[in-house]
């Protein structure tokens, strides 16, 4: 099931250019890679957010797939309905009997926060569909407000940095772990800077027997206050620092880390490239970098332990 770039290059991009996303946005890159990876026809939905408003400016659309949008909090629910209708029609012989992939997209606001309920419902009911969160770590479409995916210490327009506050107080929510707790068919984290890894995961997710979820870190240069041409580089550095570990989790509990940095770089290197963390350089805020590092280490060690447990179980079974 290896990704063959040569073959992919001959495929049509299912997200057309000419959309209104900012130059240097990694969101469309995430969607293009996901759609290129799909081996069957796909039907897509997207929650309200950057990717929805910039790709569907009526009467235009960038989507060369069937596409549906309804609101901010319900991409997973809307696509649950689409998938259910397809299953029913297929059962009754009203549509051709063939495999179709269903993909719901949502940003972190629409997935971690207001859309968490409908995501959870979709996972629990067991719809055979893939949810892809393009996680740019804040409400970027409405002007950079904090979300529960915003990392501690990052400045947003509603988590400001100054003499009293130093950006967001809380650590980011570990949504991927929450999704795993539902025991769905397939869960993964990915980045657009390693397309082979991400696209392999999309293929595995779409083939999985049940609901699947991929959380993709998608840097936003407007909100992260970095240069427009550094999104991919910063995504990769998030992986190299283990801020954003790449792994997949398969039912009933097999965890595989799909990319291990040769040398785990300090999270400070990743922070340094982003203006949203600029105030952390001040001596009084340095402790926040240490706290971020501690949180990264905690999560990374947890994943290593989960992977070791998976391997131990496998060798025992083997």
């Amino acid at each position: 099931m290896a990704i063959n770039l040569k073959k992919l290059s001959a495929k049509q991009d299912l997200l057309a250019g000419g959309h209104a996303a900012c130059a240097g946005c990694t969101g469309p890159t995430v969607i293009r890679q996901a759609l290129l990876a799909a081996e069957t026809p796909v039907v897509c939905g997207c929650a309200t957010g950057c990717m929805e408003v910039t790709t569907t400016l009526y009467p235009f659309t960038s989507w060369r797939t069937p596409f549906i949008h309804s609101a901010f909090e319900n991409s997973a629910a809307t696509m649950s309905g689409v998938e259910t209708a397809f299953r029913a029609l297929r059962r009754k012989g009203r549509v051709p009997d063939r495999e179709i992939g269903f993909i719901a997209f949502g940003g972190d606001g629409g997935t971690y926060d207001i859309g968490l309920q409908s995501l959870s419902g979709m996972l629990e009911r067991g719809h055979k569909m893939l949810y892809i969160c393009y996680d740019n770590e804040a409400y970027m479409n409405t002007g950079i407000q904090r979300s529960s995916a915003t990392p501690k210490g990052a400045e947003t327009t509603t988590a400001q940095a100054g003499s009293v506050k130093a950006g967001k107080d809380q650590n980011r929510k570990d949504l991927t772990a929450i999704v795993i707790a539902h025991n769905p068919a397939y869960v993964a984290q990915a980045v657009p800077s390693l397309p082979n890894d991400f696209m392999t995961k999309v293929q595995e997710a779409l083939k999985a027997d049940g609901p699947s979820f991929i959380n993709v870190l998608a840097p936003c240069h407007r909100g992260w206050r970095c240069k427009p041409d550094t999104g991919i580089e910063i995504a990769q550095l998030a992986v190299e620092t283990c801020f954003w570990p790449l792994f997949k989790w398969e039912r009933p509990g097999r965890l595989t880390i799909t990319y291990k940095p040769k040398e785990k770089r300090p999270v400070a290197e990743w922070i340094k490239l982003q203006g949203r963390f600029k105030h952390l350089e001040e001596p009084r805020n340095r402790h926040i970098i240490d706290e971020l590092q501690a949180e990264v280490d905690r999560k990374w060690n947890e994943l290593l332990a989960m992977e070791a447990a998976t391997q131990a179980a496998q060798s025992k079974a083997g």
Binding site: I114, Y139, T142, G143, Q145, T157, T158, A159, Q160, V164
Partner: peptide, 21 residues
Amino acid sequence: FGYPITPQNELTAYMAKRMPE
């Protein structure tokens, strides 16, 4: 208590700054 949506985001951002003050 707020939540982002255009075209009122300036008000939410203002309160984020002003309420602690």
